[in-house]
Simulated assay, not measured.
Amino acid sequence: MYKIKHFIEWQVFGVCTAIGEKMGIATSVIRKYFIYISFLTLGSPVIFYLFFAFWINIKNYIQRSRRNPLRYL
């Protein structure tokens, strides 16, 4: 059960966590407003969420590649 909770918190909600850390706002507040805005606008913020999730994954991949330059030798 812990592994499922950990996966959901860090993989699925990674966008809200990243935004919260950058802006200095609690992650729970960002998640709550995301849900409210999604209901009011019929789900259009989901597109932005997916874009930011893609961006964060690419950024993390690039950072991991730079840490070990001898990895591909």
Rank of each mutant, 00 (worst) to 15 (best):
W55E: 06
M23F: 04
F34E: 06
N57M: 02
G14K: 02
I8C: 10
G14T: 10
I25P: 07
R67A: 07
K59V: 05
N57L: 00
F34G: 08
K32M: 14
R66P: 03
P69D: 09
E9V: 12
T27W: 04
R64G: 04
Y49G: 06
I62A: 10
W10C: 03
S38A: 15
I37F: 13
L73G: 05
L70S: 10
C16Q: 11
F48Q: 14
I35A: 11
M23E: 09
Y61T: 07
Y36K: 14
F13T: 02
R66G: 04
K5R: 13
V29M: 12
L42F: 14
R67Y: 09
L42S: 06
M23H: 06
F54S: 03
F52Q: 01
L50R: 14
F54W: 13
I25S: 08
N68M: 11
K5T: 07
E9I: 08
F7T: 14
Y2A: 13
C16K: 02
L40N: 03
Y49W: 14
Y2G: 09
R66M: 11
K3T: 10
V15N: 00
T41E: 00
W10M: 06
I62V: 08
H6M: 09
N57K: 12
Y36P: 03
E21D: 14
R64I: 05
G24D: 01
L70N: 11
